[in-house]
């Protein structure tokens, strides 16, 4: 019961505030403009958006190309590569932490959108590839044969025939990738050390001390951080749930 009552985010956050009437706007502007751990909340949000866009661009491209390759490969190749993907999924992130810090440091990619995005893209690729394999495998072979007869090469067939009918799959994997990036803390803490480069998930961590006296702004900040992703989920929830189910069934 407690669990259920706590689920709708806005309710949890609204409850302790609901007592006085003029909380809303002032809290939100305070949280938005307030400098938290060296940078305003808005900076963290922009950084998170940039990292999300960049890592999704790389991860979805590589992952879905691989997914298409897996769907079209011979059984043997497909099995071997899928095994590798599953193995990559089960690697604890922490083992990559120090070497990634070293690697990105060597190429001056610490505190950069590209650096952290490459890492996120790599870790989302196996999931995307496995889900997209199922999506692409559902494309009727006849369509590909027809495309071939129409004179399309493999790549043209992928672009013009397969991609348009797999739109749902792309929405699914993009949302799953976004949820991962929006939440990720471990790499972000290590790879983004300057306040002005931090993503939302790390920036928020300095939130606790900052707004001790101002609980209203504190909760308003949490709502601002949560609102966009929850809204997207509610809007596209069917895609998120179908993506997860597809990925698990294999």
């Amino acid at each position: 019961m407690l669990l259920l009552s706590l689920h709708p985010t806005n309710d949890i956050y609204a409850h302790p505030l609901g007592l006085d009437g003029r909380w809303q706007l002032s809290n939100y502007t305070a949280a938005w403009r307030g400098v938290v751990g060296g940078a305003p909340l808005s900076t963290y949000i922009v950084n998170s958006l940039l990292v999300a866009l960049c890592s999704l661009a790389i991860g979805v491209t590589c992952g879905s190309l691989a997914g298409y390759g897996l769907a079209r490969a011979t059984r043997g190749l497909s099995n071997v590569v899928s095994r590798i993907m599953v193995l990559a999924l089960s690697v604890p992130l922490v083992v990559a932490l120090i070497p990634t810090f070293e690697l990105l440091g060597r190429y001056r990619l610490l505190n950069s959108v590209l650096g952290v995005s490459l890492v996120y893209a790599a870790f989302m690729t196996p999931t995307i590839a496995l889900i997209m394999r199922s999506v692409f495998a559902a494309v009727p072979r006849e369509l590909l044969e027809a495309a071939k007869i129409d004179g399309y090469g493999e790549f043209a067939a992928l672009l013009r025939v397969v991609l348009p009918i797999s739109k749902g799959g792309f929405i699914s994997v993009s949302l799953l990738g976004l949820i991962f990036v929006w939440s990720e803390v471990q790499f972000a803490v290590v790879l983004l050390t300057r306040p002005q480069n931090r993503t939302l998930s790390v920036g928020l961590l300095s939130f606790q001390g900052q707004f001790v006296s101002d609980q209203g702004a504190f909760f308003a900040g949490l709502v601002i951080a949560t609102f966009p992703i929850v809204l997207l989920f509610l809007f596209f929830q069917r895609y998120v749930t179908s993506g997860i189910t597809l990925g698990a069934i294999k």
Binding site: L4, W182, L205, L222, I229, V240, T241
Partner: peptide, 11 residues
Amino acid sequence: WFLPVIIPVSV
């Protein structure tokens, strides 16, 4: 019931 999965871990 799925909402907590979406909410950023930091939050």
